[in-house]
Amino acid sequence: MPTLSFLSNSISRKNLMALTGLFLCLFLVIHLAGNLQLLLPPERAQTQYNFYSQLLSHNYLIKLVSYALYLSILIHALDALILTVQNWRANGAQGYVYDRRRTASAWYSRNMGLLGSLIFVFLVIHLKDFWFQYKFGVVPMDAEGHKDIYPIVVAAYSELWYVLVYVVSLLILGFHLWHGFASAFQSLGLYHSRYGKWVKYFGWFYTIVITGGFILIPLWVYFFNY
């Protein structure tokens, strides 16, 4: 019997993709729930969101989870890179001259690597503009002595091009999740001919809620808070 290794064969590598992916899915729920506070009336949103940001950056438990989160993103991306290179190699030196294989599966399921790479680029922009700014930038204090991150968020979302970057990026995330959520359960083998379709339906419901929720925030701020 082999030891529990995460890189020894295709199933174990896919397990790693699935586990990190599902952890990131869980994070998205919490991230969205917190960020829905941005939909509140501006003054209330400012106090509450600044307090919430302070809480996130000063709680040791949350700090621990955030390290697991950064690690998950890196492992998910690196493992994807390994899988993709292996898949290219497995295709052999010569491809098909006439190739209509794309007719047999959905485009987003075949382009998870590309979608994931675009999400990674978005993450860099996203983290640089908010997370990095909050942690290492000069942020003024609000009336309650919390870092006043709220005006930075509103300022960002009052730029049309920035809102468009967000909407497009989140749609890309949506397609990634549309395939990825159910695919993760399938990779783990947590799937059954009877319940499998419910996992798929729940994945689609999850994707619509998460993607729709995240898209709503910059649009809301752009149209109602600007």
Partner: peptide, 13 residues
């Protein structure tokens, strides 16, 4: 794995 097949990404093609 030894035969150098690729990894399944559940496209179901």
């Amino acid at each position: 794995e030894k035969e150098a097949f690729g990894n399944c990404t559940n496209t179901k093609a």
